[in-house]
Nucleic acid binder design. Sequence first.
DNA 1: ACTCAACCAGGTACGGCGTACGCAATGGGG
DNA 2: CCCCATTGCGTACGCCGTACCTGGTTGAGT
Lengths: 244, 244
Amino acid sequence: MGRWKVPENLWMRPERSARGPQPSFSRAALTEAAVRVADAEGLEAISMRRLAAEIGAGTMSLYRYVSGKDDVIELMVDSVVAQYLPEDAVISGDWKADLGALARRARRTMLRHPWLAPLAANRQGASPNRLRLLEASLRMVDGLGLGVDEMLTLIGAVFAYVNGFVQSELAEAEALRRTGLDLKEWTALQAPFMMAVIASGDHPMIARMATEGGRAYADIEERFEYGLERVLDGIEARLPESDG
Amino acid sequence: MGRWKVPENLWMRPERSARGPQPSFSRAALTEAAVRVADAEGLEAISMRRLAAEIGAGTMSLYRYVSGKDDVIELMVDSVVAQYLPEDAVISGDWKADLGALARRARRTMLRHPWLAPLAANRQGASPNRLRLLEASLRMVDGLGLGVDEMLTLIGAVFAYVNGFVQSELAEAEALRRTGLDLKEWTALQAPFMMAVIASGDHPMIARMATEGGRAYADIEERFEYGLERVLDGIEARLPESDG
DNA sequence: ACTCAACCAGGTACGGCGTACGCAATGGGG
DNA sequence: CCCCATTGCGTACGCCGTACCTGGTTGAGT
């Protein structure tokens, strides 16, 4: 029948209202603590109890500032995602350079905050800084003869690549951090299985990879650049003719 | 000083050993139950207690088959990821067609199992079916004049795009499922904030998007194809000259 | 044929988690 | 000045992953 509980929009609820005692904390302090803890110990270290302790509050007091853990995550993402684009960013008019720079800054930000990549990929509700980024991205590709829908498709493709790349880039490092192993131990753990696979003879390419490709794979920066430039090139090749 | 607990490699531990009573369950049954539950109720419905109940076992009995929840996830991913490539897949020799088909099947599989995309992006340990996919992918791009490292870079770029795209594609649907809202309620919830943003006048492109781009954005299939083809085109343009 | 180490099933318990609920204290608007 | 919206937060509930332990089962070695 009726609604049971209408979830409120975090970004519309004012931080504080007129009447009542002075709040002792703030969303900003909560967000800062959450980002700090997640940077140092990973997203799984984020709990309402832990955050409350971190800012010197009672656990349930947090619920005066956010409606639940999801809101905390939302605040974390929005605050950090702002770094994708510097405050004073200007749009040069060269869409490939502008969008490429945004993509590279996005990657750097996600590498600095390893918990961000999966969240950034999975959330898409509107938030202040995400909208600011979207606005800037649209301006970068405005004037190429594309409709708004096509601009969104273009931007979406670039960010799909960036998010996907950074996630796989971080996967190994995060696995190591979670298990507390170092790289040597981890490969030693995988080795017997890989050996068995290679010995089976069913996977000749993987065998080649294990021997021939032994020199550390391509540099990770190069790999990111390779894909990013391929995406931008592929997009450029199908742009409508410009009458400039 | 010494090691405290060496995590064992799931894929090297034999499912059953010689001595002792007949096992009542199996990894396969556990995996099947896990996939079934996650498909129907989402990854957050997966718990050791729930899975045990699902196959009629005591909770702690599961630990005879896997070393913990992580192993269950690993089994789920490996079992489902097999669908990226049909058993009888043949490599045509047209690398764009082959890799494109693999990418499209990967997307279809992730859409059928909405819990898969984030896991597929974040795991990269070796597992039987993942190695089978890697082997096939390498064979698809063999003979293009690339070294193994370059092949891996190429394949990585394509899958980065696919994973990133599908994750953002699923984000909204998953948010709706988690909250139990339907699309109308969800947009109604976001509306006031979007209205405020548009009214502020700071985001003209977003305002244009909200009015002009009202017609449902581009079809999602088209958007996926657009990006996939741009990536493949961009790659092709920089391939070494073929002497065919 | 017998033994017993190796294996199985699973109960209990511990320390975490998110958060619903209720209560006492506070302080600005009327 | 006083009302009551608002704050801080203690308690409690129902989940979670899994360490540890007991007690039953079985096949390989003698």
